[in-house]
Write a protein that binds this DNA or RNA. Structure first.
Lengths: 237, 237
DNA sequence: CGTGGGGTTGATATAGTTCAAACTCTGTGG
DNA sequence: CCACAGAGTTTGAACTATATCAACCCCACG
């Protein structure tokens, strides 16, 4: 998962997202969105690619048995909206205030990738980053215990999200979103938070503001081989 | 990213694998492998790209807590071995008799993608498919019950694997592999099989030969929205 | 014959779901 | 200004699916 990690981090960079090349960027139309807004939904024609600039969104799907699953969280720097068949398979919904998203007409982007090697590479890279995010996500869900899953999740968010000046971690998603992301019940997420709080592994100020007090403990509890992950500074590749 | 990319990108559809373009194919050296052979392992320099021709392999990783996880099964048609960082992250081990694998020197392949737009597109396309496939794997693991997970797994295998003349499904992997793929205990996999057998949803002749008697029942039990999946001919979802 | 790996089945323990209730916070209307 | 409603969160108690431990079967192989 080294690779994964590296991509992940590079991707992320809520900290310093790499901006697409000039030609690509010229296609962009930036929009501001409100919480709850739906960017796309299953079956919708995929006309655009998106790039999260500020804020956050989630990609979800409804399973046959009616449960909701959060497939991915989209944070600043993430390119998304890829499809294979030309139709979206997921809901993409804005979950944070002050969310701005760049929108690229798919047809133009497609044409661009055929002409411009740099654009092509950009797309491939974005796809690989998405893959690595998903892979990390898979490892998170496999963590045997709920506390382990949450530990891994917090580490992931600490890397991907913007860390506040106060050094606190601002989670843009609700407990429900976290639960559907880790596939556990909301109550279990809440209890897992309580455990970490009691152990002084994390401190919280309200449900969405967290401080990681003992990073080592989080690493130890999570089944994800985070120890192999490079730090954002190294930003490999 | 090395390992990540390798599996991911490598995952093209199963039943009627699209063969890489001619120029690409000219680089190939085909090898025959025995069960248990290791193609690559974490940390190994990634010199080659691979394409599974016949047989099967699994890609695994060992987690911090010592458990083994099957990250992917490699079936005929699957491309794998892509890396960005240049080192593998997973074990790739042959699990079936009569396994033959085409090997492409990485450097040559890389050069080819830079020169040949078709090759480049082949890779990108594979990456996009991989994203969808990863999501399917994720959904498999999320299925609430073990029987649901196994149901989804069998449907996936029925699509990706070669179906025998007798209409039976030949599973190239052991119960242990399935367990590590779905992240459940071996015993649970075994019990889930028993349930499906008792319900006449499937019939078995030995552990690795299965007949799907009631496809609808499998779809209903699995939490995966298979209704979205097209047949392999149409280029799996 | 044994031996060992894979597979199945049973009994018990436990983590997590489910059901239920209380609590916080925010916004809204009397 | 306060009461109220509703969504999000936390905690408790009972229940359940799965992990775990253990025994046994089957078969290939020396």
């Amino acid at each position: 998962l080294d690779t994964v990690a590296q991509i992940e981090i590079g991707t992320v960079a809520g900290r310093s997202p790499r901006r697409p090349a000039g030609a690509f960027e010229n296609l962009a139309r930036v929009n501001r969105h409100r919480v709850g807004e739906t960017l796309h939904y299953p079956g919708k024609e995929a006309h655009y690619l998106y790039r999260m600039i500020t804020g956050a969104a989630r990609e979800t799907i409804l399973t046959a048995d009616g449960r909701r699953q959060v497939v991915d969280f989209l944070l600043p720097g993430d390119l998304f909206g890829f499809t294979v068949a030309g139709k979206h398979e997921f809901f993409a919904e804005v979950i944070a205030e002050n969310t701005t998203i760049a929108r690229y007409p798919r047809s133009d982007a497609q044409r661009l990738t055929e002409l411009d090697a740099a654009a092509e590479r950009l797309m491939s890279e974005a796809a690989l980053k998405t893959i690595s995010r998903l892979r990390t996500h898979m490892m998170l869900m496999r963590g045997c215990t709920a506390v382990g899953k949450l530990s891994g999740f917090l580490l992931e968010m600490a890397q991907r999200s913007v860390v506040l000046p106060s050094d606190g971690l601002a989670l843009p998603m609700s407990r429900y979103d976290i639960a559907d992301y880790l596939s556990v019940a909301v109550e279990t997420v809440s209890r897992a938070f309580s455990v970490l709080r009691r152990e002084a592994t994390v401190a919280v100020a309200g449900p969405r503001l967290v401080w990681i007090l003992d990073r080592g403990a989080l690493i130890r509890r999570s089944a994800v081989p985070w120890h192999r992950m490079v730090t954002p500074d190294q930003d490999a590749y």
